[in-house]
Design a protein around this nucleic acid. Structure first.
Lengths: 142, 142
DNA sequence: TACAAAAATGTAATGATTACAATATTATAT
DNA sequence: ATATAATATTGTAATCATTACATTTTTGTA
């Protein structure tokens, strides 16, 4: 456990989120899980812990976390949303072969077109898709 | 019309796509449409032109176009895929207020983590989200 | 013109997400 | 501690995008 229950409680309170048991568990799951889980993955794992959990609650909680700036959605072009805790700016690399997702850091220089001068950028999402070196090595050794 | 029917026929044939009436119309739609349409938008507009069109055909055609490298999917984090013709590398900016989508050029330096050395990148998607200057000006003038 | 291959269609199924009303839990004032 | 109001959670049904698949239509070729 990266954060103790007390730490998570504080994090939620600081964002004006009532630190219910469910929300603490969902936050904790995201803090431990580095694979950008879908709602289904979160639900399937957490419902083992407390069988009364509802998938709707997972949706509601994530929506709230996003509104309060704790969580970001991650979209890997596979028809389902994924979620991660907001942390320092990074992009994602998805291996098309093994489906693994990697966090990557990247420097970006944006040239906004003239019609966009003065625009405010609140958020960004960078996704690279390819074949990871692990999978390339396996291919070569066949 | 940016491309004549003959030009589109040639483009499709060059990619080994049989240039059927339907495919030509879908390609033509993407060539004219700069707003990264969804399947629904393509279907609604084209079915006016030939009412026998089926939405499944739109899906099938786009899938084929993507396989042949003519089309890319664009995901704006709104639970539906969008499509655009493959053209020179660019990202997208979505205005959260007016929902307008802009194409943007950007320079990107990627620092792949050590575990990703040797990785092959086939494709990338860059999405910025914010408020466009038009919407900011409207806000200010209130 | 006939026939085989390919394209298009229409319906039903799937899967993610949302809407919403009902229930349970929590926080607050007394 | 208790009552009450506010909030959180739940479960079901609805919605919407996408896919599967069998059937029909169109196309290309002999």
């Amino acid at each position: 456990m990266i954060n103790t229950q007390e730490q998570i409680t504080k994090i939620l309170k600081d964002k004006e989120i009532a630190p219910s048991y469910t929300r603490i568990k969902i936050y904790d799951y995201l803090a431990k899980d580095k694979i950008h889980p879908t709602v289904d993955e979160i639900f399937i794992d957490l419902v083992k812990l407390f069988p009364t959990l509802s998938k709707t609650t997972v949706y509601n909680s994530l929506k709230l976390f996003i509104e309060k700036g704790l969580v970001r959605s991650v979209n890997l072009h596979d028809n389902k949303m994924r979620y991660e805790l907001v942390r320092s700016s990074h992009g994602h690399f998805k291996c098309d072969t093994c489906s693994k997702i990697y966090d990557i850091t990247m420097e970006i220089n944006i040239n906004l077109p003239k019609e966009l001068e003065g625009t405010i950028i609140d958020d960004y999402h960078h996704l690279l898709i390819g074949t990871c070196s692990n999978c390339l090595n396996k291919e070569n050794s066949n």
